[in-house]
Design a protein around this nucleic acid. Structure first.
Lengths: 352, 352
DNA sequence: CTGAAAGCGCTTACAG
DNA sequence: CTGAAAGCGCTTACAG
């Protein structure tokens, strides 16, 4: 069944069928009804490729989930509680306004080619990029291509530096610095001065910002940054396990620990509790993200809530807006975060 | 940049360019190299719509995540720990063999139209369906269309009943009945006879099977099925909360509770512990799925492990295989499950 | 081995 | 208001 068949059946030309499908105003109601009836009757749907080739928009965006240097094997990205909501949110936001979403995972440097390819093959009209890139050059290169893209968690200064101001790039971030400051100030107020950190991936903006805030707060309070209290977590549970174990067997423990995400905070809690170190009595812990599990662990994890749903929805909507309006100016959204005080923080013990 | 430009630049015809791109054997190495060089140099990528329209496969499958009667609002499907791994698994399995994945969410009955539309518009060559449908008629109708589809969690008997044996439908299930029997037998062995169940959604195959196994095991052991011990959970945490609270305030508690998924089991644990009822000392609990959180809650949840990754990978691979071979026969895979005994089961107390 | 040509199924100026 | 025709960018028999 093609438009020609519909035309014949309805006693009109292909042009008219096309006009009806595309809601042209200059079709009399009677003709329109006649054509529509045949379309309904035969359940006709126009061929997408033909429409696109003839000039219609493809109404499709790509979602590229970048996950380089994650663990291999069947688990891959699925472990991360953070990314799992991502895809659904993009799909919903896009579907709502009639867009389709092509999802890709990027596990290696050469997979990056998939992004520009998808654009050049005209599969997609825009792209959302999310994830931890080792080599941010790849993203830079893609942005320079000039296609509409939205990047979540990216350093805005890269835009200026690379003269991407007229690129139509959208950057959406959370207030990582401020959130970390708030969390750490809470620990300071409880009397803690030996505060450790489990860092995220330093190649990411959020990872860098959270660490920068850590140094900032400590300095503001006249506290020395001790290398032995800096655990390299890379946002990964496994690393947090290993690092915390090492910490426990070293000579001195901090009285509080800030983890750059909840996954690592929860891993730390488990190690401590297995080793008979009580949370929060012996050590206070704060995470970041507020993943669903955060409120379910015992004790419930104090953390910084990131509005992932809002951020991703905004990125998607702004992207589609840019596509439809051909916008070529950079835009940037930063979402506030919120410290949620649950049960993993206690005043510093004065008896030790 | 189009194939004509490449042809001109390379000093050949569009036909030859096309032959090079499509790896036709009858192109001399020298010509091929010449054309390839220009393609590289100009970063040319053929227009996908044009290729498809000219007869190439679209190499795209659709993933339809059906989530009817779930909660509304921003949370929607994201809550379910079960579906989050689903999408990534399909995308990976498809990407690995050069396929693209178009993801859709289906929240209402009329969204079902998206599935057949995607096929008829030639956007996709196959589809994976997963989720809880209220009205299985929709799936039946789609299967009848004859397009290659893979359904996860579906009653195989529906295939025969609807004469879908020559439809190329793929059904992938887990051994829900057997897994439930194994879990319940464990409770029986521990001496329990007052065993409750928090049911799943009865419109799903897995929900039905797990309940059927419950009735089966009880009858096998001469235990009466008591309506007051059947909690309607619908696979939803929220329902489990409410139902368990109601149960606690009724006159008699079971000594063991089987939940049709981990989400509900964990919700039940929380309610019990909040009310001072100890798990497993006062009540034993078993879940289903083995979501990541199952091993993290305290006490660690005993559950039945479902090989979601394997199931979904298989469904995707089998689907693509059917697409490429034009297979028109029904196929069916059932994956074994495994009871994992953690810390939420204890012998029935004899002192009460 | 290779080019000219038809065709894929649409959309949209163009002319009437 | 409407049809005939060109064109979108490819692929692939066809003929040589």
């Amino acid at each position: 069944m093609k438009s020609e068949d519909i035309a014949r059946l309805a006693g009109v030309s292909r042009s008219t069928v096309s006009r009806v499908i595309n809601n042209y105003p200059n079709v009399p109601e009677e003709t329109r009804a006649k054509v529509l009836k045949i379309i309904e009757e035969y359940n006709y749907e126009p061929n997408t490729s033909a429409r696109i080739l003839a000039g219609k928009s493809n109404n499709t965006i790509g979602l590229f989930v970048i996950s380089i240097s994650e663990n291999d094997g069947p688990s891959k990205i699925y472990q991360s509680a953070y990314y799992s909501t991502f895809i659904n949110t993009v799909v919903d936001a896009a579907n709502t306004v009639g867009y389709y979403v092509l999802v890709h995972t990027i596990y290696s440097g050469k997979d990056y080619a998939k992004i520009s390819q998808s654009f050049m093959q005209k599969r997609i009209s825009g792209g959302i990029l999310v994830g931890n890139e080792k080599d941010s050059d790849a993203i830079k290169k893609i942005a320079k291509l000039g296609y509409p893209i939205g990047i979540v968690d990216y350093d805005v200064r890269e835009i200026e530096k690379n003269k991407l101001n007229n690129s139509g790039v959208i950057v959406v971030n959370s207030a990582d610095f401020e959130g970390t400051v708030e969390a750490l100030n809470h620990l300071i107020k409880l009397g803690h001065r030996d505060i450790g950190i489990i860092t995220g991936r330093m190649g990411t903006y959020s990872g860098k910002e959270r660490y920068r805030a850590y140094e900032y707060v400590l300095k503001e309070n006249g506290i020395e940054v001790k290398p032995e209290f800096i655990l390299k977590g890379e946002f990964l549970k496994k690393n947090a396990y290993d690092e915390v174990k090492k910490l426990i067997h070293s000579k001195k423990l901090p009285t509080a620990l800030f983890a750059c995400n909840d996954d690592m905070a929860i891993a730390a809690m488990e190690v401590f509790m297995d080793e008979g170190i009580r949370v929060p009595e012996d050590i206070s812990i704060i995470g970041f993200d507020n993943i669903p599990m955060a409120s379910h662990v015992k004790p419930a994890l104090s953390t910084v809530k990131v509005p992932v749903y809002d951020m991703v929805t905004r990125a998607t909507e702004a992207l589609i807006n840019n596509i439809e309006h051909g916008t070529k100016t950079f835009s940037n959204f930063t979402y506030p975060v919120e410290f949620i005080n649950r049960d993993t923080c206690a005043p510093r013990r004065t008896d030790k």
